[in-house]
Write a protein that binds this DNA or RNA. Structure first.
Length: 224
DNA sequence: CCAGACGTTGTT
DNA sequence: GTCTGG
DNA sequence: CCAGACGTTGTT
DNA sequence: GTCTGG
């Protein structure tokens, strides 16, 4: 699954890596991005303008926007069946920018805190996560653009810690997700990223607290 | 027909 | 909006 | 994902 | 235990 991630590179590197034509001026590196917070993403492969999305999908028909607190992930296997995701899968796909994500290993049979690990690409480069977005408006007519991150079965590396992982699209191949294509072609993109291109290490439990957004979150921990 | 949900994860 | 359950 | 709250009444 | 908020 994917319930926390990072985007620690500077704006210039991000623009170069993805060939971005624009990035929000209030962008800053993040070490502990949590659900309900703004995440940086792209909706249009031609415009390549990075913009903010609230993490947690609020479908346009929602009466209570709190539904978004629960729709932070969508299973790749059932995107075309679930009422909450079906229409977004067909016409509102997005890329969420990241350079690492956290997974927690629950402590065996104990009530101790879960142990976090950070997963990155071996070369440290940023990547895109496959996502869906929607627009919601409240009674006052104010809009919220929100998103969810798609998950798939874990690869051999992530699987040591957790059974699911986010769908990673590398920065040279991610644009296909935004193109108009048949749903079966799109679904074919939602595969576990090759384990041989990834690395992982345990990090301090400081990252457990969503209020801690600091380089300490990505520091290696002395732990199994 | 209307009312109510719309999700994932992990754990038991 | 659309589907499921009663 | 994890952390933290989980409630009402009345008074300041 | 379960829900909400970040």
């Amino acid at each position: 699954m994917c319930g926390r991630f990072t985007l620690t590179v500077d704006a210039e590197q991000l623009v170069l890596s993805f060939g971005l034509k624009g990035i929000p001026t209030d962008w800053r590196p993040r070490y502990n991005i949590a659900p309900t917070q703004p995440v940086l993403g792209l909706r249009d492969g031609e415009m390549r303008q990075a913009e903010w999305f609230r993490w947690g999908l609020i479908p346009s028909w929602a009466k209570d926007p709190a539904i978004g607190n629960r729709l932070i992930n969508a299973r790749a296997e059932t995107l075309d069946e679930k009422p909450a995701f079906r229409s977004a899968f067909a016409s509102r796909r997005c890329l969420i920018l990241a350079d690492g994500f956290y997974e927690w290993q629950s402590a065996e049979g104990k009530r101790s805190p879960s142990n976090p690990y950070l997963f990155r690409l071996k070369d440290g480069s940023p990547f895109a996560l496959a996502g869906l977005w929607d627009t919601w408006w409240n009674e006052a007519g104010e809009t919220v653009i929100s998103c969810t991150i798609i998950t798939c079965p874990a690869n051999e590396l992530v699987g040591k810690i957790h059974s699911r992982m986010p769908v990673i699209l590398d920065r040279t191949q991610c644009w296909g997700w935004l193109e108009t294509r048949g749903l079966s072609d799109l679904k074919a993109l939602l595969k576990p990223y090759p384990a041989e291109n990834m690395m992982a290490y345990p990090v301090e439990r400081a990252v457990n607290n969503p209020a801690v957004d600091d380089p300490v979150c990505i520091q290696p921990a002395e732990r199994g």
